[in-house]
Design a protein around this nucleic acid. Structure first.
Length: 417
RNA sequence: GUGUCCAUAGUUCAGUCGGUUAGAACGCCAGGUUGUGGCCCUGGAGGUCGUGGGUUCGAGUCCCACUGGACACCCCA
């Protein structure tokens, strides 16, 4: 085979696109009820936008970005996530000047050059939302509820919400030092990965998957116990709101997100129905990011969720079929004259909003019936010399096999309903 | 980037110890029924055995490299 899709990319084929559309509809519906407007940003940006927002030292920026030079020698990057672009657009178009709180959501492809795995592709799709302009924990909780709402509306129950607070500029530095001091004591025994993280991003040592690391850090201090009063209060209110909305969650003091820009609330929704890559969604507050990108100091919070992973959970259940387009009527024709009549009639009915199919391969009646059956057409009419002469035919119900007479020129009224 | 396993019709897979012309099921096409689908019966089309090298009288089968895939690590959605 000469051409193949690029490693880590996938075609979404006709038979599976119905599930995607169902999920997309659900997302649009949920976002509408929370009053979020859709925003569509370009799939690529200046490289430095991502380096600045996500963080130079993160895995995403240091080794996973699709970065290339265009013909003007500018360094561009296929977006690895959505928040940076949304904030760029927010600042560029001064959306904050038009209203104090901006609530937007997005759906689209993201790109990261990683080794493909279950639930991980190089081009994958995320939906997510951002609320820019308010420091209120209500919006932190709104993010969690929106993601959860999408899942429950799709009948997914196997998800769990974990939350943590990663502090802010006031409390994190002191905690970091404390943590590093503790980690130094067991440094020699830590896994190589964790050793490397002690200085680069010590918080991430705590959520290492390595069992030995977990044991060694069992008694390590957690940031949620070392928050400043502002962050403590914020975290408490977020939890109170989750309780008040009857949302089930666990506080996970070791939860750390991989992007540098988070402050205060961080959360993750995972599914037990997935394999090793079990995070369905993740998000958190980023009160310093807008300023970091050149805007006015503006608090914000957001989340991102993986579409493929969501689809994987859905696929494990018996998904109601019939998500594909199916013609309502198949017009089978027997000779040249009736084939032309069928084609013209089909076009006429289609313009009235009725979905109709005809055979364009010159196939036998039997083959046309087989095709109508395969397409799950609800009705079939057969047109030949006799029918054109008499002006009437039989309308066959493909489910029951029953036929009933119908006038050719009243076909459209039969399907008006 | 690292590791393990894998790669044979459109799909899911057989293929013995290295030995003649690489098979099955499903799907597709046609016929059985001169104008009626599904079920059944019959027939047909469809393969560079991932690619390239090597060993051998002989390779789908053994060896090496590459490419791709699955899973895990790292990390993330």
């Amino acid at each position: 085979m000469k051409f193949k899709s690029i490693k880590g990319t996938k075609d979404i084929l006709p038979f599976e696109v119905g599930a995607w559309q169902l999920v997309e509809r659900t997302i649009h519906d949920v976002m509408r009820t929370f009053n979020y407007k859709e925003i569509r940003t370009p799939a690529f940006e200046e490289t430095s936008l991502f380096a600045r927002s996500i963080g130079e030292l993160t895995d995403i920026v240091s080794k996973e970005m699709y970065t290339f030079k265009d013909r003007s020698d500018d360094s561009l990057t296929l977006r690895p996530e959505g928040t940076a672009s949304v904030l760029r657009a927010y600042i560029q178009h001064a959306l904050g000047e038009q209203s104090p709180l901006t609530k937007v959501y997005y759906i689209g492809p993201m790109f990261r050059q990683e080794r493909p795995q279950a639930g991980r592709l190089r081009q994958f799709h995320q939906f997510g939302a951002e609320a820019i302009g308010s420091p209120s924990p209500q919006l932190d909780v709104e993010m969690m509820l929106m993601a959860l709402e999408v899942y429950t509306n799709l009948g997914i129950e196997s998800s769990t919400l974990k939350i943590n607070s990663v502090g802010c500029q006031k409390c994190r530095p002191a905690y970091k030092e404390l943590l590093i001091r503790e980690l130094r004591k067991v440094y020699e025994k830590l896994s190589p990965e964790s050793q490397a993280r002690v200085l680069q991003n010590p918080l991430r040592v705590l959520d290492s998957k390595d069992e030995n690391d977990q044991k060694l850090t069992h008694n390590a201090p957690l940031i949620k116990d070392h928050l400043c009063s502002d962050c403590t209060e914020h975290f408490a209110e977020a939890r109170a709101l989750l309780d008040a909305t009857n949302t089930r969650y666990q506080v996970d003091g070791r939860l750390v997100r991989g992007l540098d820009y988070y402050t205060k609330t961080a959360f993750e929704i995972a599914s037990s129905a997935l394999g090793s890559q079990d995070a369905l969604a993740g998000g958190g507050r980023y009160d310093l990011l807008v300023e970091e990108l050149g805007g006015k100091p503006t608090p914000g919070v957001g989340f991102a969720a993986g579409m493929e992973r969501l689809l994987m959970v859905l696929a494990k259940r018996e998904l109601s079929t019939d998500l594909e387009v199916q013609p309502v009527l198949f017009i089978a024709a027997l000779n040249e004259q009736s084939r032309r009549w069928a084609f013209v009639k089909a076009c006429e009915l289609r313009s009235k909003g009725i979905s109709v199919e005809v055979d364009c391969l010159g196939r036998s009646l039997k083959a046309q019936m087989r095709e109508a059956n395969r397409q799950h057409a609800r009705f079939v009419v057969v047109i030949g010399e006799n029918e054109l002469a008499s002006g009437s035919t039989n309308l066959k119900n493909m489910q029951t096999g029953q036929e009933s007479p119908v006038k050719l020129d009243s076909l459209d009224s039969v399907f008006r309903a």
